[in-house]
Design a protein around this nucleic acid. Structure first.
Lengths: 107, 107
DNA sequence: AGTATATGTTATAGTTTTATAACATGTCAA
DNA sequence: TTGACATGTTATAAAACTATAACATATACT
């Protein structure tokens, strides 16, 4: 798969609120697939699993099987890449905005 | 609009590749709406404008009208918020992954 | 005023995504 | 091995999103 396609998967994966909530659950510690399903009582178990699949294909989750359980881990690397794409490392966002405004007004 | 809803708009806006390309165009300097349309020759002008509208409603773009021209600026603040949501400030992502693996293996 | 330029709005067909149901595999413990 | 548990796969209806066309407004210049 090309790098561009992989990036698409990351953003598509983050586009759904339930999937972002799953990543929130995994932020501090891994969870089993069953743990995740239990947190979404209003949602069908199959639906949750499909969301987990989308996140895994995007590389935002990686997993490790132990006996009957599948432990899911957050991989935050793609999220750092989003940050690096648009944030100037040598200026805070607010400074950046003001700089651009100034640049325009001087025209 | 609630904060949660606003966040939804940001992620939905980032979900489309054309919209991400528009943000890339604005990273270093503002562009007029016409400038942006000119960069997407294969896409209808109306389509580009709708994308710009989605980005603006999400707060990823803000604009300033000067005469007949509308200057569009990138606002990277929501992107920093994405970063802050999942990245632990006191550990690099790779360190974080290893820490979680270790935590699991010790069970 | 009249014309060209630059931008904005609304409706809709085509495409993609989400939630669910039905079905299926692999593991543990008595 | 039998039953219960935990997870995984495939198909489909409903919902959401994208691209386009048709229509509309605002500004600058002669």
């Amino acid at each position: 798969m090309s790098s561009a396609k992989k990036g698409d998967l990351v953003f598509k994966a983050l586009a759904d609120r339930r999937r972002r909530e799953i990543l929130d659950l995994l932020k501090d510690e891994p969870k089993t697939t069953g743990d995740i399903c239990a947190k979404f009582k209003k949602l069908d178990r199959c639906t949750v699993m499909q969301h987990v699949g989308v996140l895994e294909r995007a590389g935002l989750i990686f997993s490790k099987k132990v006996g009957r359980f599948r432990w899911n881990y957050l991989n935050a690397v793609p999220i750092r890449e989003i940050y690096d794409r648009w944030i100037n490392k040598y200026a805070s966002p607010s400074v950046e905005i003001l700089t651009k405004l100034k640049h325009d007004l001087e025209k």
